[in-house]
Computed example of a mutant assay.
Amino acid sequence: MEKTYNWAVLGCGHIAKKFSNDLKLLPNANLYAAASRNLQKAKGFAGEFGYEKAYGSYEEMVNDPKVDVVYVATPHSHHREHALLCLENQKAVLCEKAFAMNRNEASEIIAVAQKNNTFLMEAFWTMFQPSFKKAMEIIKSGELGKLKTVRSDFAFNGVFDPQKRLYNVNLGGGSLLDIGIYPVFAALTSLGKPEIIKTFADFASTGSEESISMIFKYKNGQMASLTSSFASFSPTQTEYWCENGYLVLNPKWFVPTNITVWKKGEEPVNYPSEHKEGFGYQYEAAHVMDCLDAGKIESDRMPWQMSLDLMETLDRVRIDAGIFFPGHDKNLFF
Rank of each mutant, 00 (worst) to 15 (best):
N38Y: 11
D68C: 11
A42N: 11
Y51Q: 13
N63V: 00
M302L: 07
I109T: 02
M302Q: 09
D64L: 05
A92I: 05
G172K: 12
A54E: 04
K17R: 12
A100Y: 08
E108A: 12
F333W: 13
K133E: 12
R318P: 00
A231R: 10
R37P: 00
A92F: 03
F49V: 00
T260M: 12
A113R: 14
I259D: 06
V69D: 03
E2N: 02
L177N: 14
R318A: 06
S77R: 12
D293P: 04
F325T: 01
I323K: 10
L247C: 13
N28E: 03
N117P: 03
A33F: 09
N157R: 14
A204K: 07
T149F: 00
A98G: 03
K3F: 00
T227L: 03
V69P: 03
D64T: 11
C12T: 08
H76N: 06
F185I: 08
T313P: 03
N104Q: 11
K53D: 04
K296T: 01
A54W: 09
N270Q: 15
V255M: 12
C242P: 01
K330E: 08
G47H: 02
L84K: 14
V317S: 05
D178L: 15
F160T: 02
K198D: 06
K264D: 08
P27H: 01
L23I: 14
M302P: 03
V248Q: 10
E137V: 12
K217V: 01
L308W: 08
N168H: 08
K66R: 04
K18N: 14
F203I: 00
K133I: 14
F325P: 07
L26T: 09
F185K: 08
F203R: 09
A123N: 15
T227A: 04
F119Y: 13
L84W: 09
F324C: 08
G192E: 06
I109F: 05
M101H: 01
P272Y: 14
